[in-house]
């Protein structure tokens, strides 16, 4: 493997790890705040799946970096400007509708992305995808059902859900952006060409939103920057909280 490709895979694994840890963290904020006990338990499982994914991606990135860092160095010792997650993942937890709409957008995205990643020539990435596919199948079942219930529930739930869709829509465009790193890996059969997933994503999401009596927004605005470290203000606060204990005791074991 050339150094250029190795570096690209490390960067790629870090990005996917960042997506997972940030979304996993956001979902974990729901613990003890769920609308009822059963949902509290169920949503916790989704968060655990994402944290598990983050650990696998970071462990692989650390292995490739081979500079003594481990998964926690990737999660806890990088600043928001160094984080490469998609902006969608870092948006605050919002109300339950907001979180479930974000979840739907992410779940449909992974439903399309993971089977492609499974085909990766890179065995580790493919193995992580194999595990994650099963999780995502279940996640999507949940978020789809929630968006249907909330969209087609009461007037209030409909309003909240439509608002969430409108507020989050502009952050979904960058899910399908490619840059040189990802293009290189896609050409090598290692990474996924996400630009090819946009149509299928739009179709699946639109069908669900329509069934939920919600309106699919016009593409009138788009915010980008997650993959280059140009984040919203939300991530800094999230990382401050997440990293405080770890960073207060440099070099310590937990």
């Amino acid at each position: 493997m050339s150094d250029q490709i190795k570096d690209a895979i490390q960067e790629y694994a870090t990005r996917l790890g960042d997506d997972s840890v940030v979304l996993g963290h956001r979902i974990s904020e729901w613990v003890s705040y769920g609308p009822f006990l059963e949902e509290d338990i169920a949503y916790g499982n989704v968060s655990l799946d994402y944290i598990g994914r983050a650990r696998m991606f970071y462990t692989y990135a650390a292995e490739l970096a081979n500079d003594g860092r481990d998964e926690d160095d990737f999660a806890y010792m990088r600043n928001d400007r160094e984080y490469r997650n998609l902006l969608l993942m870092e948006m605050p937890k919002g109300d339950f509708a907001y979180s479930q709409v974000r979840q739907l957008f992410a779940d449909v995205y992974y439903t399309l992305l993971l089977p492609e990643l499974l085909q990766s020539k890179d065995e580790t990435l493919s193995a992580i995808a194999a595990k994650a596919i099963k999780e995502t199948k279940y996640h999507l079942r949940r978020s789809r059902d929630w968006v249907l219930r909330l969209g087609d529930g009461t007037e209030e739930s409909h309003k909240r859900t439509q608002k969430a869709v409108d507020q989050l829509w502009g952050y979904t465009h960058e899910l399908f952006d490619m840059d040189d790193t990802e293009q290189l890996l896609a050409d090598e059969g290692i990474g996924v060409d996400v630009s090819k997933l946009r149509d299928a994503w739009l179709k699946m999401v639109s069908d669900i939103l329509t069934e939920a009596t919600l309106t699919v927004p016009e593409d009138s605005w788009a915010v980008r920057g997650g993959r280059t470290g140009y984040h919203t203000e939300n991530l800094g606060h999230m990382l401050t909280e997440m990293q405080i204990v770890h960073r207060s005791h440099p070099g310590c074991k937990w």
Partner: peptide, 29 residues
């Protein structure tokens, strides 16, 4: 769930975060 949940977002390692989250989730269970 609350006193321990208070530390889920600040758990000092990813392993501890997963352990604590599943523990608090068990309490709900």
């Amino acid at each position: 769930m609350q006193p321990e949940g208070n530390w889920i977002t600040r758990a000092p390692s990813l392993r501890r975060k997963a352990v604590l989250l599943s523990k608090v989730q068990d309490e709900a269970g």
